[in-house]
Computed example of a mutant assay.
Amino acid sequence: MRTEVVSEPGHEDRPNEDFASVGVPAFGQGGCLVVLDGVTPPRTGTGCLHSVPWFTARLGGALTELTVSCPDLTLPEILARAISGTAEAHKITCDLSHPRTPQATVVLARWSAGTLDYLVLSDSVLLLESPAGEVTAVLDDRLARLPRASLATDALIDAEIRNKEGGFFTAAADPSVAGRAVTGSVPRSGVRALAALTDGAARWVEKFHEGDWTQCVGLLRKEGARALVNRVRSLETADEEERTYLRRSKTHDDATAVFVEP
């Protein structure tokens, strides 16, 4: 099995809020992939004593352990348990009802000899490549489909659409959001490779339009995950002044890319 994991902070002086792991069960009949993109907190606070990296490490660690060790649980059940366990770890000291309590996007994949199951929540992406080279992008596009007016300010987003019906959902403190995730299963024989990208790495396709998802997987296979992140960084730097593509986005975002040939 070939695996590559690259995760790089957007700025050297700020901690990386992403999380990535690849697990191989001891019984040797499959594996799992976990990628989280922590939501950068506002300056006004989150109601929590803990940082976003603390949260993504805690949630990501729980997801990895459960996905590897509990093949009898579905991926939504695993996500719900991991969210509940993480919330339990800081519910006494923190206001978990705050709309900006630490939270993250989620990509989960688990494969056995016969099946690959997947789960995507919010705007990270899972790519599945068939033996014929066709690439399917598994996306939770609810955030992308929202009217721009609803995204005008952080206060409006928090009040109207963050983790609310008709808006978008992230993994925070409410385990019921696991039921909102995009999920599915495909035959293991139909997957030659898979990749997971946080939106900082997916910029190569989604923001800079350097290629499509099939070309992105081709780049990952040929040059590796590090090459994809390096290309994104070069594109960000080149557009820093004119902001033709970046517009109002942060110049550099945390970028994580995982590539697996199981």
Rank of each mutant, 00 (worst) to 15 (best):
M1P: 09
T3S: 11
V5P: 03
E8C: 03
E8R: 13
P15G: 06
E17W: 00
E17T: 06
D18M: 04
F19T: 05
A20D: 11
A26Q: 10
G30W: 10
V34T: 05
L36Y: 11
R43V: 15
G47Y: 13
H50D: 08
T64Q: 15
T67K: 12
T74H: 06
R81M: 14
I83L: 12
S84E: 15
S84V: 04
H90W: 14
K91V: 15
I92A: 13
D95T: 06
D95E: 07
S97F: 06
R100G: 01
T101G: 08
A104V: 12
T105D: 14
V106P: 04
L108C: 08
L108F: 06
W111H: 10
T115W: 05
D117N: 11
Y118M: 08
L119S: 06
S122R: 08
V125R: 08
L126K: 09
L126T: 08
L128E: 01
A132K: 04
T136K: 05
D141F: 01
R142I: 05
L146E: 07
P147W: 08
A149C: 01
L151Q: 12
D154P: 14
A155E: 15
D158R: 11
D158M: 07
E160Q: 15
E160Y: 02
R162G: 06
G166C: 08
F169A: 03
G179Y: 05
T183D: 02
S189F: 01
S189I: 02
G190Y: 03
V191A: 00
L194Y: 06
L194H: 04
W204I: 07
H209G: 03
H209S: 09
E210R: 15
E210W: 04
C216I: 01
A227C: 04
L228Y: 04
V229K: 00
L235W: 09
E236T: 01
T237V: 00
D239E: 08
E241D: 09
E242D: 07
T244W: 11
T244I: 13
R248L: 13
S249A: 12
D253R: 03
A255N: 04
A257W: 02
F259Q: 02
